[in-house]
């Protein structure tokens, strides 16, 4: 099991602190945020692979935060944390690009398993992007010309 860079976003501080301690004990990097705003601020400065995001929060709600993350940090995996009653919003979240959802109250192992999946997919994605960039760098000049033509035509 590799070390994960996680961020927990929930308005319950005690949940954040306890879960953070638990995850840290298991050897992971954990950042916490008690609101969507704080989460977005911290994401701008810190390296986070997976965000575990509560759907229902005062102020900026989970779905809005999710949108912001997808726009500003498209590579970060997001796992929605939801009460059963808000399962519809969780589904909506997945449609808007969340990696998965967990219903409250959740088991720490389940949470961790999903976080790992998300992280590995993110790494996978990053790998592919790197490879793609490499391909672009060694493309033939003809292709570059064609691409430029295409842009002009638009």
């Amino acid at each position: 099991m590799s070390t994960l860079n996680l961020m927990l976003v929930d308005d319950e501080e005690r949940f954040l602190s306890t879960t953070a301690k638990l995850l840290q004990r298991k050897g992971h990097q954990v950042t916490t945020a008690t609101s969507g705003q704080e989460a977005l601020e911290k994401l701008a400065t810190q390296d986070v692979e997976v965000v575990i995001l509560d759907v229902k929060m005062p102020g900026m709600d989970g779905l809005t935060v999710l949108h912001e993350i997808r726009v500003r940090f498209p590579l970060i995996g997001v796992i929605m944390l939801t009460g059963h009653g808000t399962i519809e919003s969780a589904v909506q979240g997945m449609k808007s690009g969340a990696f998965d959802f967990i219903t409250k109250p959740c088991d720490i192992d389940e949470l961790l398993a999903k976080a790992e999946e998300a992280a590995s997919r993110r790494r996978d994605l990053e790998d592919r992007i790197r490879k793609a960039r490499l391909m672009t760098a060694i493309r033939s000049p003809r292709e570059l010309v064609r691409e430029a033509d295409g842009k002009e035509r638009k």
Binding site: E12, T18, R25, H84, K104
Partner: peptide, 20 residues
């Protein structure tokens, strides 16, 4: 139920921490 779920989540986390 939603309001109860949040404290339950915390209790569960606390339990996991104690066990760990």
């Amino acid at each position: 139920a939603h309001e109860i779920n949040n404290p339950l989540q915390i209790i569960r986390s606390e339990h996991a921490l104690i066990a760990a």
